[in-house]
């Protein structure tokens, strides 16, 4: 697992997008420094452009529509440069289209590029799409012997979130061996360098002695154990803080209750209960474990040894 946050540089984001659009089968029609134009297949378009009503209309009326072209600039220089280029192209197109129609004058504008930086709408959508499309996979190393025997592994990736009034998250990847339920840490990092080829699950689970569910349960138990054994100071502190806050709140409501006539105390108690509940919801320490990815990985016997 890398300690650094990925996608923090424009180069990384460019590489990420190139890989993504290639994987989903989008055509690159323009490739310039820190700039790309991609033509989106319909399924990708639906995921990246956030216009459900448009697609509903397209499908209801059986239209064939022109595919969307994304013009993505990965830094400010590229954006300025390409916007200028597009404006020039626009002028040329207008010059050729003489005489101009009313539509040309009113509505034709130069195409605009969009800046893809961290937190931009488009990158968020691409990330979301990649996460959805990359949830499960079934692979063996590329070029393995056709009759090779595989050690079957279930790889589970996910996030552990330590939550109180703030949150701290770790990403993890574990491998559970389906032959003996061994658990291996940082499994993804150990195999990420391998070139993989897709395969069918039967090829891998042939050697399994345990079911996938058994493996998953073993991992759940293991993760619970890690949480219990890990540093729980943050939770202890959060609990003390919450206890303090609740005591303060309770003392306050007790002290002002006497100032209220008996018939209004009911309302006051309700208000007290609500604020208590909100505090508890906000600050109670808890751990959330989110499984984000599952993979069946077959590692050839010899390679693994």
């Amino acid at each position: 697992m890398t300690n650094r946050h990925p996608l923090r540089t424009s180069e990384e984001r460019l590489t990420f997008c190139d890989r993504y659009f290639q994987a989903v089968g989008a055509d690159v029609i323009c490739e310039r420094p820190m700039y790309r134009e991609y033509i989106l297949p319909v399924d990708v378009d639906k995921e990246l452009t956030d216009r459900p009503f448009y697609w509903m209309w397209v499908e209801k009326t059986n239209q064939t529509v022109e595919p969307t072209t994304l013009r993505l600039a990965f830094d400010q220089d590229a954006k300025l440069r390409e916007d200028e280029r597009l404006a020039e192209l626009h002028q040329q197109a207008l010059a050729q289209a003489q005489p101009l129609s009313g539509f040309d004058i009113l509505y034709r504008r130069p195409k605009q590029t969009e800046l893809v930086d961290l937190g931009s709408f488009r990158l968020d959508k691409i990330i979301e799409s990649a996460r959805r499309r990359g949830q499960t996979v079934c692979v063996v190393p590329h070029g393995a012997h056709p009759h090779a025997q595989y050690i079957p592994w279930l790889m589970i990736n996910g996030l552990t979130r330590y939550v109180t009034d703030s949150v701290s998250e770790t990403w993890w990847s574990k491998g559970v061996c389906l032959a003996n339920l061994q658990i291996v840490e940082s499994f993804y990092d150990r195999i990420a360098h391998l070139e993989m080829a897709g395969t069918s699950p039967e090829v891998i689970v042939r050697q399994a002695k345990h079911s996938l569910l058994e493996a998953a349960e073993a991992l759940q138990a293991y993760l619970s154990h890690l949480v219990a054994e890990g540093d729980l100071n943050w939770a202890e502190e959060a609990r003390l803080r919450l206890a303090d806050d609740l005591a303060q709140l309770d003392a306050y409501y007790q002290s002002i209750e006497v100032e209220y006539p008996p018939e209004e105390r009911n309302v006051l108690q309700q208000e007290h209960a609500k604020k208590r509940q909100a505090l508890i919801e906000k600050s109670t320490p808890r751990v959330e474990i989110e499984v984000t990815q599952l993979a069946l990985v077959g590692l050839p016997l010899r390679a693994h040894a």
């Binding site: 990925p6 989903v24 990330i127 990649a130 990359g134 499960t136 897709g198 069918s200």
Partner: peptide, 27 residues
């Protein structure tokens, strides 16, 4: 997962890797 059939190809592995990067990018 057991019924993925032959759908997994190298693109799927690429997307899996991208998803792993994406998950780490957002934590």
């Amino acid at each position: 997962l057991l019924h993925l059939g032959q759908h997994s190809d190298h693109r799927q592995w690429e997307l899996f890797q991208l998803a792993a990067i994406a998950a780490q990018a957002n934590i």
